[in-house]
Design a protein around this nucleic acid. Sequence first.
DNA 1: TTTT
DNA 2: TTTT
Lengths: 159, 159, 159, 159
Amino acid sequence: MLNRVVLVGRLTKDPELRYTPNGVAVANFTLAVNRPFSNQQGDREADFINCVVWRKPAENVANFLTKGSLAGVDGRVQTRSYDNNEGRRVYVTEIVADSVQFLEPRNSQNNQSNNSSNSQAAGGYDSNQNSNRQQGGYNDDPFANDGKPIDISDDDLPF
Amino acid sequence: MLNRVVLVGRLTKDPELRYTPNGVAVANFTLAVNRPFSNQQGDREADFINCVVWRKPAENVANFLTKGSLAGVDGRVQTRSYDNNEGRRVYVTEIVADSVQFLEPRNSQNNQSNNSSNSQAAGGYDSNQNSNRQQGGYNDDPFANDGKPIDISDDDLPF
Amino acid sequence: MLNRVVLVGRLTKDPELRYTPNGVAVANFTLAVNRPFSNQQGDREADFINCVVWRKPAENVANFLTKGSLAGVDGRVQTRSYDNNEGRRVYVTEIVADSVQFLEPRNSQNNQSNNSSNSQAAGGYDSNQNSNRQQGGYNDDPFANDGKPIDISDDDLPF
Amino acid sequence: MLNRVVLVGRLTKDPELRYTPNGVAVANFTLAVNRPFSNQQGDREADFINCVVWRKPAENVANFLTKGSLAGVDGRVQTRSYDNNEGRRVYVTEIVADSVQFLEPRNSQNNQSNNSSNSQAAGGYDSNQNSNRQQGGYNDDPFANDGKPIDISDDDLPF
DNA sequence: TTTT
DNA sequence: TTTT
């Protein structure tokens, strides 16, 4: 069945990069996508859409995007559920990105929250590319994400 | 910003049609969209995606689709939140359909749950069309939906 | 950069299956997609959109779809040019399908132009699946497509 | 039937704005959309996709976008044909934009080809908005587009 | 819990 | 709470 989503918006926060027990990278981020029309009160609203991306593009996202970055997402709608710590079933709808597009150069006026000295003119970099840009070597270390507890499982892998 | 979703799937139940206090029609339904790949256990899963549609297409949806109907949706991702009866903030992600496509004739083998005697070959009817098909006249009666409590407000209208 | 197309329509003819010199399958077909609105004269028109699909899905398309079949396409817009036999540069815009969705059972009332005796209830078969359905074994024979001259090159492969 | 396209790319030239005999604005432009993968020779190619947009968004496009501007398009695939001056039938496939997204501030480094002194931070302006930005008043003058011959007809209007 |  |  067809299931396709395309979004362009700005990250509400820096992306979160984590690793499954098997060392597969996953990044989560939220896109604020402004609506093209105003509501009854006359102001523009936005949708805050949760996105997930796996593997190499996850690492590219974590390396290139920060709070405020303009990004495009091409993916699909996914629903899943889990039982929270109160024993309640929680239903989640999120976008699984097949690819993420970086629509601004790194460190443009919109994402000065990272302080890398190495600016780069992007103009359409695709997160699906392989790259030798990551300096942290965290690729080989599932716990490199500063020891944050990992609650995602390899079963969540989209394929 | 861009926000576009296209889905093709089957209704998990008959759609629910309601009216705002101002008499604007809204229909809700869930599409089961089968994934194109299998999970680690080797079985095909589906995403169960909540959809909303407003005004005339809402009534067309309620008249044409039933549990099991194959339908296409062209719309956008919307997020909103409300406080539930336990005083907790609930976050909702759903698809607001601009148009809904009926991909099967009415009363095909997949939607025999309605028992109208009036079969019709569809093959691509678009819910955006006006139509004189509704017999209930509920268009003029916001309470025609058998007295079900209406908890949606006109503020939820997408435009 | 983002480039995404989703279509649902009916094949205007049986698909054409061919093979590159290296034996890679390609299928071409045209989808008639009815417009959701009428023109000034009050009649509904359609767009006739040329589609290409490669590899295994190409063979599935050739096996499952015939003139009149309802199908969904998820792909991208591609432009290319070639010099025709009059030495003129011709520009082509077409859709390269990543996946093709079969939205009707084989041999439904809309695609009786093939005369296979083996009907099958489909209801959402995805062309990306591998399958053991092809009986012709043409997979190993680049000229199996009844000796038709092959004018596509392996350079046209999308990846 | 479903027909949806989403593109993000850069204009290959300044857009062309024209008016039908009835004074309806139309803008044409071509988007260069880089492919996310390299070809056999290892270089990245692009698709050059012709787009049309009507009415108010046409004027916004003409006012905001220039050669090199990064833009997003949400629209549909359209095919049409006409007889050229050699009496030959020409088939055209193009994207009819429902909305065009401006993904860069006006006069950013990528579209310095216009020399307006009035820079403006955009960050996601939607061409569908009404605006009081046009100074030329060409809205009321179908020949304001410097006398260029108009070969489009009101019959080409999408609705 | 939200971006420009 | 899920469809074929």
